[in-house]
Simulated assay, not measured.
Amino acid sequence: MRDIGGFFRRNRLAALGAAVLALLLLGLLLAPVLAPSPIAVDVTQRLLPPGAGHLLGTDALGRDVLSRVLHGGRATLAIGVGVVALAFAVGVAAGTIAGFLGGVTDMLIMRLADAMLSFPGLVLAIALAAALGPGLGNAMLAVAVTLAPQFARLARGQALSIATRPYVEAAVAAGTPPLRILTRHVLPNGIGALLVQASLAVGSAILQTAGLGFLGLGAQPPLPEWGADVATNLALVREAPWVALAPGAAILLAALSFNLLGDGLADWFDPRRRMAA
Rank of each mutant, 00 (worst) to 15 (best):
G5W: 13
G5I: 13
N11L: 06
L13T: 13
L13K: 08
L13E: 12
L16N: 03
G17F: 02
A18L: 15
L21H: 05
L21N: 02
L23E: 14
L23V: 15
L26T: 12
L28A: 07
A35G: 05
S37V: 09
P38K: 15
I39P: 00
V43C: 00
Q45P: 02
G53A: 13
L56S: 04
L56Y: 07
G57Q: 10
A60Q: 13
G62I: 09
D64I: 09
L66V: 01
S67C: 07
S67Q: 02
G72Y: 00
G72R: 00
R74T: 09
L77W: 01
L77T: 09
G80M: 14
V90I: 15
V92F: 05
V92S: 10
G95D: 12
G99C: 06
F100P: 00
F100G: 07
G103Q: 11
D106V: 02
M107D: 11
I109D: 03
S118P: 00
F119E: 07
L122V: 10
V123K: 07
V123N: 09
L124D: 13
A130M: 08
A131G: 02
G133R: 03
P134G: 12
G135M: 05
G135D: 07
L136K: 05
N138M: 01
A139H: 01
V143M: 04
A144C: 07
V145N: 08
V145E: 10
L147D: 07
L147Y: 08
A148D: 06
F151D: 11
R153N: 09
L154Q: 09
S161T: 11
P166R: 08
P166G: 14
A173M: 15
A173T: 15
T176V: 14
P178H: 15
L179D: 02
I181N: 12
I181R: 12
L182T: 08
T183G: 15
R184G: 08
H185D: 12
V186F: 11
L187W: 13
N189F: 01
G192L: 11
A198D: 05
A198W: 04
L200R: 06
A205D: 06
A210D: 01
A210I: 00
G216Q: 11
L217R: 05
L217T: 14
P221Q: 10
L223I: 10
L223A: 15
V230L: 03
N233M: 10
L236T: 09
L236Q: 14
A240H: 07
A249T: 04
A249F: 05
L253E: 04
G262E: 11
G264P: 14
A266E: 14
D270R: 04
R272W: 08
A276Y: 04
